[in-house]
Amino acid sequence: MQQSIPRSILLSEAVSGIEEAPTVALLGARQVGKTTLARQVAEAWPGQSTVFDLEVPAVREALSQTPEILLRNSEGLVVIDEVQRLPALFQVLRPVCDDPNRKAVFLLLGSASWDLIQGISETLAGRILFVDVGGFSLAEVGSEHQDRLWIRGGFPRAWLARSTAAWKRWMQSFSRTFLERDIPGLGSKVSPEALGRFWRMLAHYHGQTWNAAELGRSMDVSATAVNHYRDLLAGTFMIRVLPPWFENLGKRMVKSPKVYLRDSGILHFLLGIEDMAELAMHPRYGASWEGFALEQTLLAHGQDQAYFYATQRGAELDLLLLRRGKRWGFEFKCTDAPRTTKSMRIVIDDLGLEHLWVIYPGDLEYPLAQDITALPLKKIGDLAL
């Protein structure tokens, strides 16, 4: 098994970004490959490059004491890793980016979304481009490794682990570090034990409509508390909160979001699943496929303007993408031979879908109806939306 996976599309996006804007941010979960990608950007950069790793206390102290001097006098490519650890930098970066004599461009690496970073009084709106860095995609690892990617997830070290035991050890270390160091590093006062319990519980609710009251009762905490836990995990890219699509159709519609663990490997680790045989026998088998196929679809076609659709009477669409003024629908079915359903016909009519694809684990692409196609997940990147 090769020990590195080229990520040429992400590299191209990052390199193009720093040619177009004074600041580019690589955003994604910890250990997802941002630092490796930044190193490759620096290697492709024609001039000098400087790296500030805010995980290093001395570096963090230096930038916190004299940030304007260091950044204003910098030249070439300046990489700032784990930027969420020093939110005050954003106040300094704005005037630096606006300086007509600026000699540097900035590449920021963050493991938390801007919404979670406290104390930012200035923004970089109009001065920054974002590159979302997810786990490995099927296009990157190769379709022949679909099951391995599904069971292990897309974190590089998890996917490349030499054995199932090594994968499990990495997952144990990652989850412990995330709860005990990363979350407190954001200034959160939530105890690691409470958030860990919520995370494990959420694995059993993977792919379901959010119900804060129900989860709060299960944990014996308030709905406000579980909403805060959810926001912490969403803001650190551990879960995806998929919003509902609703418009005035004269129907009673579901208006709560659906929640997924973004990485299938973390889902399986929290559920105690270690291989495909165990997964196939687990009650969350179908939900696991839905979340995995959803993430691969969003990696291939972008996560902007992505929704699910559901009515109170049971009609539902797993994923609705709005692209270039058209509506495209996706259903994710873990079956050998997908079939059309009454619900599919209803959502096509309700939403005016251009086409609906039923994404499944097989190999054959074939029409189910004039406007419905069964599509193997391995071909998801071939679609032109």
Score class of each variant (00 low, 15 high):
213 A>P: 01
271 L>A: 10
256 S>N: 08
117 I>K: 09
195 L>H: 09
243 P>K: 13
287 A>K: 04
143 S>C: 11
127 R>D: 06
22 P>Y: 03
380 I>A: 15
126 G>H: 07
235 G>R: 11
222 S>Y: 04
83 V>Y: 09
346 I>A: 14
272 G>D: 08
299 L>D: 10
283 P>H: 02
204 H>Y: 08
98 D>V: 07
323 R>L: 06
337 A>Q: 14
249 L>S: 07
5 I>H: 02
77 L>M: 10
172 Q>L: 10
263 D>V: 07
296 Q>I: 04
115 D>G: 08
210 W>I: 03
94 R>Q: 15
89 L>E: 08
335 T>W: 06
250 G>A: 15
114 W>F: 02
113 S>K: 14
195 L>W: 06
345 R>W: 01
203 A>S: 13
246 F>Q: 06
47 G>W: 08
209 T>N: 10
79 V>M: 02
160 L>P: 02
148 R>Y: 00
346 I>F: 05
25 A>H: 04
63 L>S: 05
161 A>P: 03
283 P>Q: 11
41 V>F: 03
72 R>A: 15
83 V>A: 13
251 K>W: 01
3 Q>D: 14
223 A>V: 04
376 P>T: 11
68 E>T: 12
44 A>R: 15
75 E>C: 02
24 V>C: 13
192 P>A: 07
257 P>V: 08
60 R>G: 11
73 N>Y: 09
308 F>T: 01
9 I>L: 12
19 E>F: 02
262 R>Q: 10
321 L>E: 06
225 A>H: 12
384 A>Y: 00
238 M>V: 13
69 I>M: 13
253 M>D: 03
223 A>F: 02
214 E>A: 15
323 R>V: 00
175 S>R: 13
364 L>G: 00
221 V>C: 15
362 G>P: 05
20 E>K: 15
316 E>G: 04
27 L>F: 01
168 K>Y: 07
31 Q>L: 08
176 R>K: 15
310 A>M: 03
102 R>N: 03
130 F>Y: 14
191 S>P: 02
162 R>G: 11
301 H>W: 10
95 P>V: 08
368 L>A: 12
54 L>I: 06
88 A>Q: 14
261 L>Y: 04
